[in-house]
Amino acid sequence: MTAVQKRIIMNRIALGFSTLSAIIALAFLFWILAVLVMKGVNALNWNIFIFEGAPPGYAESGLKHALVGQLILVGLATGIGVPLGILAGTYLSEYGKNSKLAHTIRDISDIMMSSPSIVIGAFVYAIIVMPMGHFSAWAGAIALAIIMIPIILRTTDDMLQLVPQTLREAAFALGAPKYKVILSVVYRGAKAGILTGVLLGIARVAGETAPLLFTSFNDNFFTTDLNEAMPSLTVTMFNYAISPYEDWQQLGWAAAFILSLFILGLNIVGRLILFAGKRK
């Protein structure tokens, strides 16, 4: 066998292996997707949206409490995390720029983005749950907001930097003060990008379970009291899935399916906005 023939065979083997690994990866991933969709669709019914949690065995058992709790938690987290993230990103892009400080903040924020979310939960437990003496929706929302800030900060920083410098200069030339230039020119130019970042940030924290386990904890009943433990889809899903009761497990899959659809929807809308913004 000549050297060239050997190389051709080696090429076939290597490319075959890499195609095989892609097939294996896809097979596993579709298996999970298929389970999620089939189990989820099977478990879906109107009761889920009408009733709150009930002990196992009850027919009138639903996820209303967790759905509303999830929306409250994510909404609160968005209310806290988005303004802080956007302002911080604005500082980096418009004031800090290439200063050492700005780079340090970017680096630390980048590391934060990949840090274990359960540690954030432990931190919030220590600073809020322990002094207050009980779990609360506030604690859960703050934990989610801390996870959200680095994501929003990063996209805002990146998106604002894409706004052409000439646009800023043109506004300055008209005598506008810097804050006005930023608010009316720079933000407007980066609107689509920032909005996408916000949606992706919300999508990311909506799927978090670990930081909620010991901050907002869980509750099997409907509540809107922000000073009390609050149910969420993720923690409910976790608790129901590890329970030995089949009807609870069913509800767990329904929660999984609804939450995945919600997150996927946010992802799609976010990308569509960015896409539409780019085409203009």
Binding site: I32, L36, A203, G207, T209, M237, F238, A241, A256, S260
Partner: peptide, 21 residues
């Protein structure tokens, strides 16, 4: 698109799949 789909799935669901399947 598949990767996007999977990124949208919360990790707790991977755990549920692992446990049951």
């Amino acid at each position: 698109i598949s990767v996007e789909l999977l990124a949208a799935i919360p990790s707790v669901i991977y755990g549920m799949w692992g446990l049951f399947y």
